[in-house]
Design a protein around this nucleic acid. Structure first.
Length: 381
DNA sequence: AAAACGTGGTC
DNA sequence: TGACCAAGTTT
């Protein structure tokens, strides 16, 4: 790895800074007030949304979120269901749950004002080293260098970092590099300019080196193969799972949904009952078994009305969705015939027109879309 | 340290 | 199309 030189400092502060001022993309959270100050709450919400998420994806979510929860107080006093509904489709839902809890912490411990102290910011749930540095530099002008995927890529290329960029020891070296390069007079411009360069010029594939303000100091470009950096270790192959889903209707055409535990994947979202198909059973068998185990409910499993493939971050699934009706026979011994969640989570019968009021995982939305597309009858149930 | 944690865009 | 990856954090 090369060392930081005055040429590097000049390139990152002057050439890159000038480039950024000419190419800075407007974003809603970048707007400042009359005194040129950004709202820390808005910056914070945007940074959490931007974790592992592209700007274009985050923008509409940000607008809708700020409309519903314009202040920490508004977010703190909202129901978690309302917060998750605004987050529906954005993924990594612990971000929304943590944001909600953090807002309550800001109200309880900081009088509703986003703290400007690094330790206090880091104490907020869902705020790690990146987000703390981002909010404190962008909204408060504090001299902290951010290290995100963009910065890693830019620095790994400029300094030809051969080590695995995902290894903690490499991350620390890159963080030190970023801190050493930081323009302490203009930390906000520095951080945003490196990230903006990484997002629009120094891209993972086909970087636009011809227009890059750092090209003159870039070791990877000098080496002829900038795409060789950053060096990343291979990830594990993802397993596949088969899941049976029960679309249970009652006599009034309502559907049964249940809320997922907060500490689980997709925690706090609503879904149709179901579960994993074991190797020893068929999908319809698994459907009936899961409903009996989870809800103490006896159902007749009807036709498969949708089949959905979905990719999560660490596994893939095929969902088999079956139309189910309550069994006319007597309910299982010791049960009332009303659904009761074995895990203690809320369960609810809902009319089809009420489904949009609940936050569902994408895979469950795909099931609904498949049914409606196939039947052309939204009132199928 | 390594795995868990969503979704959509891209080639 | 499957694999990679995106303004990361938590356990």
């Amino acid at each position: 790895m090369e060392q930081v030189t005055d040429r590097h400092l000049a390139a990152f502060h002057d050439a890159l800074g000038a480039w950024f001022e000419a190419h800075r993309r407007p974003m809603p959270w970048r707007e400042a007030d009359e005194t040129g100050v950004r709202n820390p709450y808005r910056v914070w919400v945007s940074e959490v949304m931007l974790q592992q998420t592209r700007v274009d994806t985050a923008v509409p979510y940000f607008e809708r979120f700020m409309e519903a929860f314009p202040t920490p107080e508004a977010l703190a006093s909202a129901d978690q269901d309302a917060v998750l509904k605004r987050w529906e489709g954005l993924g990594y839902y612990s971000r929304a749950r943590n944001l909600h809890r953090a807002a309550q912490q800001i109200v309880a411990e900081h009088g509703g004002a986003f703290p400007a102290d690094e330790d206090a910011v880091r104490a907020l749930p869902g705020v790690g080293p990146y987000t703390a540095a981002a909010v404190l530099s962008l909204a408060f002008g504090q001299p902290l260098a951010v290290l995100d995927g963009n910065v890693i890529r830019v620095l790994a290329r400029v300094f030809a970092v051969e080590q695995d960029s995902r290894a903690p020891v490499t991350r620390k070296a890159l963080q030190d590099l970023a801190t050493g390069l930081l323009d302490r007079e203009r930390p906000a411009r520095f951080n945003e300019s490196v990230m903006e360069l990484g997002a629009t010029v120094c891209t993972p594939r086909s970087p636009a080196c011809a227009v890059c303000p750092l090209a003159t100091v870039c070791a990877a470009r000098a080496g002829g193969d900038p795409e060789a950096f950053p060096v990343v270790s291979k990830r594990k192959p993802v397993p596949h799972q088969t899941v049976a889903v029960a679309l249970i209707t009652d006599g009034d055409g309502r559907l049964l949904i249940q809320r997922r535990p907060e500490d689980a994947m997709l925690g706090g979202l609503w879904e149709f009952p179901g579960g994993k198909v074991e190797p020893s059973e068929t999908a319809p068998e698994a459907c009936a078994r899961e409903v009996a185990e989870e809800l103490s409910l006896s159902v007749d499993v009807g036709p498969e009305v949708a089949r959905v493939d979905h990719a999560y971050s660490h596994f893939t699934v095929t969902l088999h969705a079956f139309r189910c009706t309550l069994s006319p026979e007597a309910p299982p011994a010791g049960t009332s015939g009303e659904p009761v969640s074995a895990s203690g989570e809320p369960v609810q019968w809902v009319r089809p027109d009420q489904l949009d009021d609940f936050a569902f995982p994408r895979a469950n939305r795909k099931i609904l879309d498949a049914i409606q597309a196939a039947s052309r009858q939204p009132s199928l149930f």
